[in-house]
């Protein structure tokens, strides 16, 4: 936890940084990829070290806007680490050191003049474990709007309802918005965290195995939700579940042990016709 942040600084950055740089994705023109999807996040030669251990090795990737990008790979290969680089959550870990660039719409988020707080207001995150605050359901969802100073200008009740509806949780909790978020079941908590992340209307949503603790019904609810979200937001999701990645994502990145990005392509290509034999081994379960 080491970055100095102030409220006033963040408000300025949040407003001055809305330019858009259209970059055509040049990789492939398959059916799954709508023509003209532009790159929103451009990662270049990203390496991450924890103390002296390298967790990511020179990863480069262009993440398309308003699509679902899945990150798959064996446990410990650096998927969470990669995700946390995108919104500079790794700044909070003293041991972590990041090299390389992550460009959000052309601006390197690791530049000195970028305020990580402003960055996180544009890139929301859902964590591997559900982590609602010990506050009421309403306050959980309203948290982002409140800390980002948006709560006064809008109809907060309506925004909370919208976010809970988008997260497919509204019908279950509409009569008990005062209840503590911790009193929900695990799956409901995770959907609450999703509602919390989308309430302030970020551009990109990072999800770290959002369905790992859920039963099939809740999982399919979340998958439907991700499908809907992709119409408005860019979603980047880590998953251990191959079928899930195949079902919901437009693009898939495969990491392998050691923090190497082996292949990044359209999901269909990755699952049907991968270029790298290790990817095929991994997907078919031959790879540990």
């Amino acid at each position: 936890m080491s970055q100095p942040t102030t409220d006033s600084a963040t408000e300025e950055t949040a407003e001055s940084d809305d330019r858009l740089i259209e970059t055509e994705v040049s990789v492939s023109e398959t059916v799954t990829q709508p023509a003209g999807a532009s790159t929103i996040i451009d990662v270049g030669d990203l390496s991450v070290y924890y103390h002296d251990d390298q967790a990511l090795r020179s990863v480069s990737m262009e993440i398309p806007e308003r699509q679902v990008t899945a990150l798959i790979g064996p446990s410990g290969c650096g998927k969470s680490t990669f995700l946390r680089c995108l919104n500079r959550m790794n700044d909070l870990i003293d041991a972590a050191r990041v090299d390389g660039t992550v460009e959000l719409l052309g601006q390197n988020v690791y530049d000195d003049d970028v305020d990580p707080v402003a960055l996180r207001r544009r890139i929301g995150m859902v964590f591997q474990e559900p982590n609602p605050f010990p506050k009421s359901i309403y306050d959980n969802v309203a948290y982002g709007l409140r800390v980002q100073g948006k709560a006064d200008d809008i109809d907060l009740d309506a925004e909370v309802e919208r976010a809970l509806r988008s997260a497919a949780l509204w019908d279950e909790v509409k009569d008990q918005l005062d209840k503590s978020g911790l009193e929900l079941s695990g799956g409901q908590q995770q959907r609450l965290c999703i509602a919390r992340a989308i309430a302030p209307d970020p551009e990109v949503i990072l999800m770290d195995e959002p369905a790992s603790a859920l039963d099939p019904v809740a999982t399919s609810k979340i998958e439907d939700l991700i499908d809907d979200l992709a119409e408005e937001y860019t979603v980047i999701i880590v998953t251990h579940n191959m079928q899930q990645a195949a079902r919901i994502s437009d693009k898939t990145a495969v990491f392998l042990t050691g923090g190497e990005l082996v292949e990044f392509d359209d999901t269909q290509t990755i699952f049907e016709n991968p270029a790298d034999p290790r990817v095929e081994d991994y997907i078919t379960g031959k790879f540990g």
């Binding site: 707080v117 996180r120 929301g124 964590f127 982590n131 605050f133 948290y143 980002q148 992340a197």
Partner: peptide
Amino acid sequence: RREASYGMGAT
């Protein structure tokens, strides 16, 4: 909890 808060763009 702290991560959740920072992740929401809280200072």
